[in-house]
Design a protein around this nucleic acid. Structure first.
Length: 231
DNA sequence: GCGACAG
DNA sequence: ATCTTGTCGC
């Protein structure tokens, strides 16, 4: 009897994951502006977990950038294959997200991630990682400042303050609703920070979070709940 | 060494 | 992320 080697197609340790980040980081493209807001398509991706059953569900929801109407959507389910480690979120989320993106019937256009891009301890967060793997323009919109610091943006919607790692601006705290806690925008791949913020504002006509993330969040939760619901 | 820490 | 009721307010 022979022992089959485990396929080494994904990191199995934190140190291995960090080495992958270092190897891929140089492929991030930062000198493109990205698609203009309000044109083409914008896709939100998100993931939900069921630790009990070791399941993960991902959703991708494609919106018309001008009307914010849903154009297409897809889901994918998988096993949880990596623990949550701050700084290594991509390894936990990306496999299933990729499957959902591949199941879409149309091109995603700009992809909006739930988390960070360049605003990352190693400057290679989820949005950068997904961008490099797919070649798609990506941005990250997070709900928390993570380890970074920022001044309070002005009260009106649209106000911003630099998101700082020491002296370096790694992203922006962006107020999407008057007097409401800002969101934290950073560049993923092939999009400028100014444009990423403009997209985020275009995607938040009514709520703090982008319609893309709201739609994707609702869909992946539903997909997870619909796995063996009546049994 | 200890604590903090996207989702 | 996820566990969870009512409640205050536009």
């Amino acid at each position: 009897m022979t022992t089959e080697p485990v396929p080494a197609d994904r990191p199995v340790s934190a140190s291995e994951a960090r080495a992958v980040q270092d190897a891929l980081r140089g492929r991030v493209v930062l000198d493109e502006t990205g698609p203009p807001p309000g044109t083409g398509r914008v896709t939100g991706v998100d993931v939900a977990y069921d630790d009990e059953r070791n399941l993960v569900a991902a959703a991708a929801v494609v919106l018309d950038a001008a009307t914010l109407d849903v154009v297409a959507e897809s889901t994918a389910v998988g096993r949880i294959s990596f623990p949550y480690v701050p700084g290594l979120l991509a390894f936990r989320e990306i496999p299933t997200v990729l499957a959902a993106l591949e199941a879409l019937p149309c091109p995603p256009g700009l992809v909006v991630c739930d988390g960070y891009g360049l605003a990352h301890p190693r400057r290679f967060g989820l949005a950068c990682h997904l961008g490099v793997l797919t070649g798609l323009p990506t941005i990250g919109v997070a709900k928390n400042p993570f380890t970074f610091t920022h001044a309070a943006p002005g009260t009106p919607r649209g106000s911003t303050a630099p998101l700082l790692a020491g002296d370096e601006e790694v992203g922006r705290a962006l107020r999407t609703r008057d007097a409401v806690k800002p969101v934290f925008v950073s560049v993923g791949h092939r999009v400028s920070l100014d444009n990423a913020c403009a997209h985020t504002l275009a995607l938040t006509p009514a709520y703090r979070l982008p319609e893309t993330t709201r739609r994707a969040d609702a869909l992946c939760r539903r997909a997870l709940a619909e796995i063996t619901p009546a049994a």
